[in-house]
C-alpha cells in the first residue's frame, strides 16, 4: 500500500517535473540541497513506518523544515564564504544511509524468518510422507 503510493507519487511527479520550466542556475544549488533534505525525510518516513513509530506531524514538519533550514544555511554559508551546505549534505546523506540500513535489515529479517518457516514446514511434510 505504502509502496504503491510512493511509486504513484514518483511517477506523477516525474511526468509533471519533465514538463516544468527550468529554473535559474543561481538557484539550482539551493534546490539541490532541498532535494537532499527531502530525500532524507522520505527515507526516514519509510523506515519509521516499518518500525511502527511513524508520526505524521513529525514527518511533514521534518520534510518542509529540513528543506527550508538547509536552504537558509546554504544561503548563510554563501554570504559568509563558508561551505555550510557540505555539513548539511554530510548529515543528510549519513542519515539516509542509516535509514536505508534499517529498511534493509527489516526486509532481510523478514526474508530469513520466512525461509526458516518454509524449511520447517517442508521438513514436517517430508517426515509425514516418510511415515
Amino acid at each position: 500500500m505504502i509502496f504503491i503510493a510512493i511509486l504513484l507519487g514518483c511517477l506523477i511527479g516525474a511526468l509533471i517535473g519533465i514538463n516544468m520550466p527550468i529554473i535559474s542556475y543561481t538557484y539550482s544549488g539551493y534546490l539541490a540541497i532541498a532535494i537532499i533534505a527531502a530525500l532524507d525525510s522520505v527515507f526516514g518516513g519509510i523506515s519509521s513506518t516499518l518500525n511502527k513509530n511513524f508520526d505524521l506531524k513529525v514527518f511533514v514538519s521534518g520534510f518542509f523544515g529540513n528543506a527550508i533550514l538547509s536552504i537558509l544555511l546554504t544561503y548563510l554559508g554563501q554570504k559568509l564564504n563558508v561551505d555550510i551546505y557540505l555539513a548539511a549534505i554530510v548529515v543528510f546523506v549519513g542519515r539516509m544511509f542509516n535509514n536505508l540500513a534499517i529498511i534493509r535489515r527489516y526486509y532481510l529479517n523478514k526474508w530469513t524468518i520466512d525461509r526458516q518457516k518454509n524449511i520447517k514446514n517442508n521438513k514436517k511434510v517430508q517426515q509425514k510422507d516418510i511415515k
Binding site: 500500500m1 505504502i2 504503491i4 503510493a5 510512493i6 504513484l8 507519487g9 514518483c10 506523477i12 511527479g13 516525474a14 509533471i16 517535473g17 519533465i18 516544468m20 527550468i22 529554473i23 539550482s28 534546490l31 539541490a32 532541498a34 532535494i35 527531502a38 530525500l39 525525510s41 522520505v42 518516513g45 519509510i46 513506518t49 511513524f54 505524521l56 514527518f59 511533514v60 520534510f63
Partner: peptide
C-alpha cells in the same frame, strides 16, 4: 493516511528532482 502523505511528499520530491 500515511501512504497518502508519503505519496504527496514523493510527488513534490520528484518534481524538484526533475527540474533540477
Amino acid at each position: 493516511k500515511i501512504a497518502i502523505t508519503l505519496g504527496i511528499m514523493c510527488f513534490l520530491l520528484t518534481i524538484a528532482l526533475c527540474v533540477q
